[in-house]
Nucleic acid binder design. Structure first.
Lengths: 153, 153
DNA sequence: GTCAGTGCAAACTTTTTGCAACTAC
DNA sequence: GTAGTTGCAAAAAGTTTGCACTGAC
């Protein structure tokens, strides 16, 4: 199942590269493969570590930055910006979800809501061709709520 | 009208500072005043320039960073993160709006949609105390659409 | 063989931090 | 007077860039 998706995105990338006259380098496919092994969000630093861990393939940070832009352009990765670093997320066959961000501890969690999804999809925009969207809801998570109440700070 | 809002936010800040045992420094009020003179988004650099322009009050970047966190905590400013720098926006008495971000030229525009607003407000979240939210819709703006079609790139 | 792509290190940008001086209380 | 704030400069963190080398085509 998961392997199926990996094969599929490889194919998507291959087509994208071909169409745009880019080369099919092993680095690009190794990065794609690693990204599609990660569930949830990651930043360049984490991705660098994951690549190193696996030992399969070492790539430089510069290449990661280059490649992730390319993958975003190919529609295989989505970029987010919470916290200090850019966060990324695989986007192929990934359920659209919304984000809850705790302003106290910085924890990011996800949730789904069909109603909300529909409402956003149905919104008509003038003079704009929408491709994808991100909804971030900021607040205090339960854990921090309890801690804060205890501390009474 | 606008002056009314400025007075009101000054009052909110005063109360916030008092409540939290912070000092009522002239810098803080000058920064708040400048921010509530700005329509739309700004980053620290722009804010620094605005403060300098007015000639009224010169503050260091460090103070701007410190103060903006404080103002965000007081609910008077909202932080966004599109592009490379953190963007801010006054939030008191500011209409909730959604953002359209062009992935081609980077232009950020705003729109309102009552239906959408309601749908988001009505979404029930478990184990989370929501304070505010941001919706970013990414896509291609009309201008870039036309340019791209011409270029056929 | 050619040129896009890669790795490395240096540069750049934005934000944070340490410390001395200042000032609101 | 004292401790919270400020300004400055240095440091840190994240990202981009220049250049020589490599390898996909």
């Amino acid at each position: 199942m998961e392997e199926n998706i990996k094969d599929k995105v490889k194919q998507v990338l291959t087509e994208y590269l071909q169409k745009n006259g880019h080369r099919k380098t092993p680095e690009r496919f190794a990065i794609l493969d690693t990204i599609y092994s990660i569930k949830g969000h990651f930043n360049i630093d984490k991705l660098y570590d994951y690549m190193a861990e696996k030992g399969k393939f070492r790539v430089s940070r510069a290449t990661l930055y280059n490649t992730i832009i390319l993958l975003a352009d190919a529609g295989l990765v989505v970029k987010h910006q919470f916290g200090n670093t850019s966060q990324y997320e695989r986007s192929y066959n990934n359920e659209t979800h919304h984000h809850l961000i705790c302003t106290s501890c910085g924890k990011v969690s996800e949730f789904e809501d069909e109603k909300l999804k529909r409402a956003i999809a149905q919104t008509k925009l003038r003079a704009f061709h929408a491709l994808h969207y991100s909804l971030y809801i900021y607040g205090i998570c339960n854990k921090c709520m309890r801690t804060k109440c205890k501390k009474t700070k």
